[in-house]
Amino acid sequence: MSVFEHPEFDSHEHVAFFHDSATGLKAIIAIHNTNLGPSLGGCRMWPYLNSAEALTDVLRLSKGMTYKAAMANLQQGGGKSVIIGDPRQHKNEAFMQAMGRFVESFNGQYVTAEDSGITVADLQAVATQTQHVAGTHALYNVLGETPTGNPAPSTAYGVFVGLKQTVKHVLNSNLNGVKVAIQGMGHVGYRLAKQLHEEGAELYVADIFPEGLAKAEQEFGAKIVAPEDILSLPVDVIAPCAMGSAINDESLPDIRAKIIAGAANNQLAREELGQALHQRGICYAPDYVINAGGIIDIYHQKKSDSSDDALRAHIDQIGDTLSEVYQRAEEQSLATNIIANRIAEERFSK
């Protein structure tokens, strides 16, 4: 099967494969759409089973970035890169420098940033080979942390804002006593848990790695759950904050929550599942709307005249955008992901 016949290919402008024999780097960059400006999207490193799985991920992720930028009112297009390999074993400075040369070959039409498996230090190595890197330094932070370039604090804050707004819309409630199951205790999931805990939410957490779970249990009183059970708990909210496709044909029948609102990209294994959620009375916060805090952060870090408050105010708009999506979805009796897609397409299509 060629890229053009791939089921996730959606008029992508540019898809490129790269192999560096000296370091072993195998990577793919996909640019989906640049109508609003040069594409921007993080670099993800993951031990994909094969190149076909990596291609599926990068095609879906790059498309999602186009929609995310449009819904966040940014003059940017959508792109993404993926590296095949275990980030805990297979990368070093030379490896990431090779990735930098790959990014440079796009002549500014793709700007890379941080995503799963990639650190600020990795991006700094990439930046020795190309100037088309975002997130290597920072001036602003919405959670009062020292700015490092990691957009996770802004992503987590945006998901918190969106989740809070969705709970208000669906349950007519604040977060005190609301039961939230968080799938993934990484940089974003942990920060989301902290904010929810401070608002009085009751937390359930799961991850394939134990480090974040122990902290969440100790600091937030979170209950640790097996990864295979987290989506089927009798809770109010499920917050997918790990890899994509958490909502699929196998997991859907077991979901008992009334709300799905999390940080993961491509939470629906296929678009049609949004309508299935709608028919079951489950409110889905479209992922690329609620998790846009990171891309908003990167935009503001490039502005010398921004501030913590300006960044926070921009991210706060995620709640208003979700309210518009929910209102239109109810008026038209359609799934929230369909409505969000239509709004985004109105903004980036020519």
Rank of each mutant, 00 (worst) to 15 (best):
G184E: 03
V289T: 03
G79I: 09
V178E: 14
A340E: 05
P227L: 10
T56D: 11
G41M: 07
D122F: 07
D297W: 11
P47H: 11
A216G: 03
G108L: 05
F102W: 06
V325D: 08
A226E: 12
M1I: 14
S251P: 09
V120T: 08
K80T: 02
H314R: 05
E345D: 12
Y48P: 00
I83G: 05
P47D: 07
N33A: 09
G319H: 04
Q332L: 14
E13Y: 08
L139H: 15
K68T: 06
I290Q: 02
A242G: 00
V133H: 02
G177Y: 03
G281T: 00
L233M: 04
T336D: 00
A16S: 15
V180W: 09
E53I: 14
G162M: 07
K223V: 06
V111C: 13
E228G: 00
H278K: 13
V205L: 09
P151D: 06
V178T: 12
A30W: 03
V15R: 04
V205Y: 13
T136E: 03
A22Y: 14
E346K: 04
L334T: 08
D57P: 11
A340I: 06
N248R: 00
T66M: 10
N248Y: 01
H169R: 15
G144K: 12
Q332H: 14
V3C: 09
A239K: 03
N176C: 15
K302W: 07
Q109R: 15
A257G: 00
L233I: 02
Q301I: 03
G162V: 06
G85C: 01
Y67D: 09
G64D: 10
A22N: 13
G100R: 07
N291A: 06
L273I: 12
D320P: 14
E199Q: 11
Q267E: 05
A269C: 06
L273C: 12
L334P: 09
G77L: 00
F160G: 11
T34Y: 00
M1K: 15
E330G: 10
N33E: 07
R270W: 07
I298Q: 09
V120M: 11
G77K: 05
N248T: 03
I260Q: 01
H6Q: 00
A246T: 09
A206Q: 08
S323P: 12
G281V: 00
D316C: 10
S51D: 15
V225C: 06
F9W: 11
L49R: 15
Y110N: 02
V142M: 06
H137F: 13
N150G: 10
L196M: 05
R328P: 14
Q183M: 05
Q165H: 09
E104V: 10
E8Q: 12
K350P: 10
M185R: 07
Q89V: 13
P234E: 08
V133N: 00
G42I: 03
I182W: 15
M96Q: 08
K215E: 09
S307I: 02
N337T: 08
A261G: 01
R256H: 08
N291I: 06
H169I: 15
E93F: 07
R312M: 12
N172I: 07
E331T: 14
L61Q: 07
F348D: 00
A181M: 04
E198Q: 14
H32R: 04
E114F: 07
M99H: 12
N107K: 15
H197P: 07
